[in-house]
């Protein structure tokens, strides 16, 4: 029950799974895009931005608790990126998802802190761009007929989950923490199914809104999509289309990593060259170093425990004294 309200960690990358290079690069990309989004939404909503975005982010967070039984104890969940994009437009959705993923990582450890940039990028940026691109295209095809809302809603939600998962798998492969030839098809396959749940719930929500508040479904309508979003969508789609089969067809997906490792090795040997005497002749041997580290570690933990016990005793001493006085 305790874990039930939290979203499934299927796509939230924890810390330790991304190489620093991948994590920091994605943080930088994410910061730039979120800054643009903040600027755009400010221009649109003005001072209403804070309450509106805040409440909707809380709603998407809470909406992820809504689930329905599928089969064999598994359940379908709402992730919400697609719904937020369809209702609020891409820029607002990026901010909403940034807040949702930020809270999940910072407070609930659903996704890491260093990996947060990547998580926001995958689910909050790629997911939103894919949704926007697909939904707008289908609605344009439908030419204003209501089926465009539902077909567009389903396809965009489904694809956004699949593509976000593929991007996640590629990042893991690039970091050398998951073999590309297994991770990409596995993540893709699982999320083809998970995405169906997302698509179905999104259509359900759109159907509800279509009858109750049809005005909400036309929010994004008035303004034509900016060319930048379309281009970004195309670039993302192309990059993934090209990268996925490429990554999967590696005979050993880790050739990539081997290269990376080589690169890392060069980077690590640099301190030797700057301070050649720094190799600590006594501790240059790994077993000895491990034992030493173990001893230092035990001393550290003991020290902390002792410190606490001591501080507590000091706290209690005056209390005990006053008790004896009474």
């Amino acid at each position: 029950m305790l874990s039930a309200p939290l979203a499934p960690p299927a796509m939230h990358i924890p810390d330790g799974f991304l190489s620093v290079f991948v994590a920091v690069t994605l943080w930088i990309v994410t910061i730039v895009i979120v800054a643009i989004a903040l600027h755009r939404v400010s221009a649109d909503l003005g001072e209403r931005q804070v309450p509106m975005m805040g409440v909707l982010a809380a709603a998407i967070f809470a909406g992820q608790m809504l689930n329905f039984p599928v089969a064999g104890g598994t359940s379908g969940h709402l992730l919400g990126a697609a719904l937020a994009t369809i209702l609020m437009g891409p820029w607002a959705a990026i901010i909403i998802m940034t807040c949702v993923l930020g809270i999940q990582g910072l407070i609930f450890q659903d996704g890491g802190l260093l990996a947060m940039g990547a998580n926001i990028f995958n689910m909050g940026i790629v997911g939103v761009i894919v949704t926007h691109f697909v939904y707008r295209s289908v609605r344009a095809l439908a030419g204003g007929k209501p089926w465009g809302i539902f077909v567009g809603g389903f396809l965009s939600a489904w694809l956004s989950v699949i593509i976000a998962a593929l991007v996640t798998a590629l990042e893991l492969a690039l970091s050398g923490t998951s073999p590309a030839n297994i991770a990409v098809p596995a993540m893709g396959g699982i999320h083809i199914l998970i995405g169906l749940g997302e698509g179905l719930i999104t259509v359900g929500a759109l159907a509800f809104l279509y009858f109750v508040r049809p005005d909400l479904l036309n929010v994004g309508e008035a303004k034509p999509a900016g060319a930048s979003v379309w281009i970004a969508g195309l670039v993302v789609a192309l990059a993934i289309a090209l990268a996925s089969p490429l990554a999967s067809s590696f005979p050993d997906g880790l050739e990539w990593v081997a290269e990376q490792q080589g690169f890392l090795h060069i980077a690590q040997s640099a301190p030797y060259q700057i301070i050649p005497d720094y190799a600590l002749p006594g501790i240059a041997n790994k077993e000895l170093a491990t034992i030493l580290a173990g001893i230092v570690g035990v001393l550290l933990v003991f020290g902390a425990a002792f410190g606490i016990a001591y501080a507590r005793r000091k706290d209690r001493a005056p209390q005990a004294a006053s008790r004896t006085l009474n």
Binding site: R48, L56, G76, L78, L83, V203, G204, A207, L216
Partner: peptide, 25 residues
């Protein structure tokens, strides 16, 4: 059908949140 019911719940949660956001503002 189950997914649709859940979708309806998500939809009503969002409608209430829109309205709540307006009231808060």
């Amino acid at each position: 059908w189950r997914a649709r019911v859940t979708g309806g719940m998500a939809g009503s949660l969002l409608v209430r949140s829109f309205e709540r956001g307006d009231r808060i503002y």
